[in-house]
């Protein structure tokens, strides 16, 4: 007996590959952005559409935020260019940012 799949319409949810959780914990409620307290897979308060239009930004300090949230924070004088979580100078993690910015323009 052989089962031939002719067509499969599957449904999946996307999630950011933050690198710090393994693949199969879909049921766990996702982490939230430390600035706006909205889940990473949601969008920052100034955006309406999640995903590529409201990407994440990874810091070398291992903290992750919505990019818009962090840029807004960095833009204020009070931030002193520090990560809002640990007050270390903010340094964007290269690997992830490159990946984000490269794939952001959708084909």
């Amino acid at each position: 007996m052989k089962v031939v799949v002719k067509n499969w319409h599957a449904i999946a949810q996307w999630k950011w590959d933050t690198g710090n959780n393994d693949a199969d914990d879909g049921d766990v409620e996702g982490d939230v952005c430390g600035i706006c307290r909205v889940p990473y897979e949601g969008c920052c308060p100034s955006c309406k559409v999640p995903g590529d239009d409201c990407p994440l930004i990874w810091g070398e300090c291992s903290h992750v935020f919505h990019m818009h949230c962090l840029l807004k924070w960095i833009g204020t004088a009070a931030s002193k260019q520090q990560c809002p979580m640990d007050r270390r100078p903010w340094v964007t993690a290269e690997r992830k940012v490159d990946a984000t910015t490269n794939s952001a323009p959708t084909p």
Binding site: M1, K2, V3, W8, H9, I11, A12, Q13, W14, G51
Partner: peptide, 19 residues
């Protein structure tokens, strides 16, 4: 590259030929 898929196994449909 920055996204992963989280399948919802109960949803969707398949068209199959059972030989």
């Amino acid at each position: 590259p920055d996204k992963k898929l989280n399948w919802l196994p109960h949803l969707g449909t398949l068209k199959l030929d059972i030989e």
